[in-house]
Nucleic acid binder design. Structure first.
Lengths: 187, 187
DNA sequence: GGGTACGTTCAGTTTGTACTGAACGCTTTG
DNA sequence: CAAAGCGTTCAGTACAAACTGAACGTACCC
C-alpha cells in the first residue's frame, strides 16, 4: 500500500538515476512496479510460500540499486522481522545477493535474474526434504522376506518396486543438462 | 490410526486374495502399508495440499481392489465429506480412476500408477492458474511508451523483457517430449 | 410413495502458520 | 563506557485454510 511513495530516502536515490533531474513524482513505471509486486505476492502466496517473499523479491527485482531491510519493511509495510527472515530465505535460494556499501553498516540486497536457478533451488529446498523422507522409507522398507507365495505380500512388493523405479527415473531430472539448458538465461 | 484394522468388510475382501485361507490377522505388509500411508500424508501436507489427499491416494495405491468412499472414511478416520472432495481432486489429476461394480450402487476408486502424468497434471493445476495470472500481467502491461530517454523507465522495461524471455523459454518445458519421456513409466 | 443408500455441498469449527513487534546480541561511534 | 544502529530471534497473535458433520439432492428398492 505504502510502496513507492516518493518522499523517502530511497526514492530520492532512485530518482537520481533518471534523466529528468527535477522529477520526483511517481511515474507510470512506479504503477507498473506496484502491480508486479502485488502479483508476485499473490503468486508466492498461492504456492504456499506466503505473500511477503514474493513481494520482497519483486521489489528488489525492480530496484535499480540494492535495497536495505528498513527500506523493504517501510515500502512494503511489513515488519522488519519478516523482512529479515524472508530475505535470508531468498538469499539461500540465490534469489537475492547481499552486498555492502563501504562506510555503511547496513546490508544491501539486489535481485538475481537467473530465474531458472532460483526456481530449481527453491523447488529443491521445498520438495527436497519431503522427498528425502519418502526415499528413506523406500530404502529402509525391507520387504516381508517370508511367504513369497502370499499374493497380498507380492502385491505390496510390486507396488513399492514401481515407486522405486519411478524414483530412480526422475531422480536426475532436475540436474539433467537438458532441463538446465532449457531454463538457462542466454544473456 | 484406525487404518487397516482387520475386522472390517474390506479387509475380509482383501484377505480373500491371499493364499492362506484362514489368515485374517494383520500381516507385516499391512504395517508397511500403514507407514506408506502416513508418509504420503506428510508428503502432501508439507506441499500444502493437506494430509488427507496423500493418505487417500496411498491407501488406494496399496489396495489390491478398488475402494469406496465409506471404506476410505472409516480406515483413514476422516469425514466422508473430505473423502468425497479429495477423491474428486485426485480423479481430476488422473491419480484415481472411478469404476463401478454392477449391482452395486457405490463408486469404486482405484489408483493409477502413471506417476509422471499425475505429477504433471497436479503441478499444472496448482501452479498453472497462478502462472496464468502472472502471464496476463506480463501481456497487458503496455510499457510507458513516452520518454524513452528516461533511465528508470528503460530499466523497468528491460526487467519486464527479461521476465517475458524466461516465460517464453520455459513455457513449453512441461510439455517437452524429453521431459515426458523421462517421466514415463516403461512397463 | 415412503424408505434407504449413495455422493455432494456448505456453514461452522478447529487446526496450522504467516506475520508481528518487542527484546536481544553484536558492532560501531561518540 | 554509554548509546545508537544494525540484523536476528521468538513468543504471541491473527488470519486463512483444512477438515468436520449435518443437511441436502438423487437414484434405486420394497
Amino acid at each position: 500500500m505504502a510502496a513507492f511513495e516518493n518522499n523517502s530516502e530511497r526514492d530520492v536515490r532512485a530518482a537520481g538515476a533518471g534523466t529528468s533531474p527535477g522529477r520526483s513524482l511517481p511515474g507510470e513505471q512506479d504503477v507498473v512496479r506496484q502491480r508486479f509486486i502485488e502479483e508476485a505476492g499473490r503468486f508466492t502466496q498461492s504456492l504456499g510460500l506466503g505473500r511477503i517473499i514474493g513481494q520482497i523479491y519483486a521489489y528488489c527485482y525492480f530496484c535499480p540499486s540494492p535495497c536495505t531491510l528498513d527500506e523493504l519493511a517501510e515500502h512494503l509495510a511489513i515488519s522488519k522481522g519478516s523482512a529479515s527472515t524472508m530475505v535470508r530465505q531468498l538469499e539461500s535460494w540465490g534469489a537475492l545477493r547481499r552486498t555492502w556499501i563501504k562506510g555503511d553498516r547496513k546490508d544491501y540486497y539486489e535481485a538475481s535474474d537467473a530465474f531458472g536457478r532460483i526456481v530449481r533451488n527453491a523447488a529443491r529446498d521445498i520438495v527436497g526434504r519431503s522427498l528425502d523422507s519418502v526415499n528413506e522409507l523406500l530404502e529402509e522398507t525391507g520387504l516381508p522376506a517370508a511367504d513369497p507365495d502370499d499374493d497380498d505380500i507380492r502385491f505390496v512388493q510390486e507396488r513399492i518396486e514401481k515407486l522405486r523405479a519411478f524414483r530412480d527415473r526422475t531422480q536426475g531430472l532436475w540436474n539433467s543438462p537438458i532441463v538446465k539448458m532449457l531454463m538457462k538465461a542466454k544473456g
